[in-house]
Nucleic acid binder design. Structure first.
Length: 364
DNA sequence: CACTCGTGGCG
DNA sequence: TCGCCAAGAGT
């Protein structure tokens, strides 16, 4: 670690641990995958499968967005062996709308690894968990701590934010990551090893929020340097964002009675393995109509039925939507016809649901 | 190691 | 309407 990195005073560490754990006893969020501190103190432990599933879903995703998906997954695949036996297509269908679809592919691969190589039992140590697909530094530490009470250093965006404010770290993210992780390591403790990281994350999510932090309710306020000497919501500092470019393209909704033509995207990459309607490549410049029509799946009486705009992580997309009725003899060896009444059974990302809705084909 | 990879909610 | 960003991982 850098010689200029901050080291918290031992006294501060002790007082903050106590204050935050006490706060957690009264303010822990009651989450479906969580065992609350009272039950935990009575020896109750969470289901490793449920904790793992929730942690994967929660990567870069809000609790609100995850809850329904978590319940649906547990209902359909109650254990890791059920999930491992499922076709990947089914997993992607249930994941559709949650985003970052590599997580779903890795989830499935991880379940199969656990069943095939670990007898259906999740490894307990951080190092072993770390080798599984979809489990990185954060998730390995989180599972080891939350499930097995191991004193790991669990560092997510919440913990980074709390540390950056508590110690008023001026170095911007992502450069500050090692420093913030080092700071957090000083607070790790064996006593209540499972509750500590969850307390930190709950504080970050409900009190020490990115915007409008509720410092007056914070159990650590007396020790928080950012609150004393500056505006806490200015931390963690970040590099200025790069502008998000816009890409343009066209999507083709080919209908036959109450069905639409769908196809599968390549297994990896953007929206990998998900379903889509045929569409053009996405370019930085909008192309002329004649060129756009070259990428239609078939010559037909295409009508423009509007456009949709969708924002991805590193670019925005504007798709013009074209719709046509397939002629009687149209044959295709690519894709399949999907009933517009059963589109919930397809692995449609939100972008494609927008497209189908705009074309009037997203019915229930 | 910089880049890729979704989506919805919220001020 | 728009920028911000959430329990990160893989390459």
């Amino acid at each position: 670690m850098d010689t200029d990195s901050i080291i918290p005073l031992p006294k501060t560490v002790q007082v903050c641990r106590k204050a935050l754990l006490d706060w957690y006893d009264g303010h822990a969020r009651d989450l479906p995958w969580r065992v609350l501190p009272v039950a935990r103190s009575e020896g109750q432990r969470p289901d490793p499968y449920g904790v793992w599933l929730s942690e994967i879903m929660l990567q870069q995703t809000s609790v609100t967005a995850v809850k329904d998906y978590y319940a649906a997954f547990l209902d359909r695949w109650p254990g890791v062996e059920h999930l491992a036996a499922a076709p990947l297509e089914d997993v992607l269908t249930c994941w559709a709308g949650l985003g970052y679809y590599a997580r779903a592919r890795n989830l499935h691969a991880c379940a199969q690894r656990v069943v095939d190589q670990h007898g259906g039992v999740f490894p307990q140590t951080e190092a072993e968990l770390r080798t599984l697909p979809g489990i990185g530094d954060y998730t390995a530490a989180a599972i080891a701590a939350i499930v097995h009470d191991l004193p790991t250093n669990v560092v997510d965006g919440n913990v980074e934010r709390v540390m950056a404010r508590l110690h008023q770290v001026e170095r911007p993210l992502p450069d500050a990551k090692p420093e913030l992780k080092s700071l957090a390591a000083h607070y790790v403790l064996e006593y209540r090893a499972a509750d500590w990281p969850q307390a930190l994350m709950d504080l970050g999510a409900t009190i020490c929020r990115p915007k409008n932090p509720k410092c007056d309710l914070c159990p650590l306020e007396r020790h928080c340097l950012a609150t004393k000497t500056g505006k806490p919501d200015a931390y963690p500092r970040r590099r200025p964002k790069v502008a998000r470019p816009v890409r343009y393209g066209a999507a083709f909704v080919l209908c036959r009675d109450d069905t639409v033509l769908l196809r599968r995207r390549p297994a990896k990459g953007l929206l990998g393995g998900m379903s889509e309607v045929p569409n053009s490549s996405w370019q930085a410049q909008k192309e002329v109509t004649e060129t756009v029509m070259m990428s239609a799946p078939v010559e037909a009486n295409w009508h423009n039925v509007g456009s949709v705009r969708h924002v991805f992580t590193h670019f925005a997309l504007e798709l013009d939507i074209y719709k046509a009725e397939a002629s009687e003899g149209y044959q295709t060896n690519e894709g399949w016809w999907a009933s517009c009444h059963k589109l919930d059974e397809e692995a449609l990302p939100s972008l494609m649901r927008k497209v189908l809705a705009q074309a009037g084909m997203l019915l229930k």
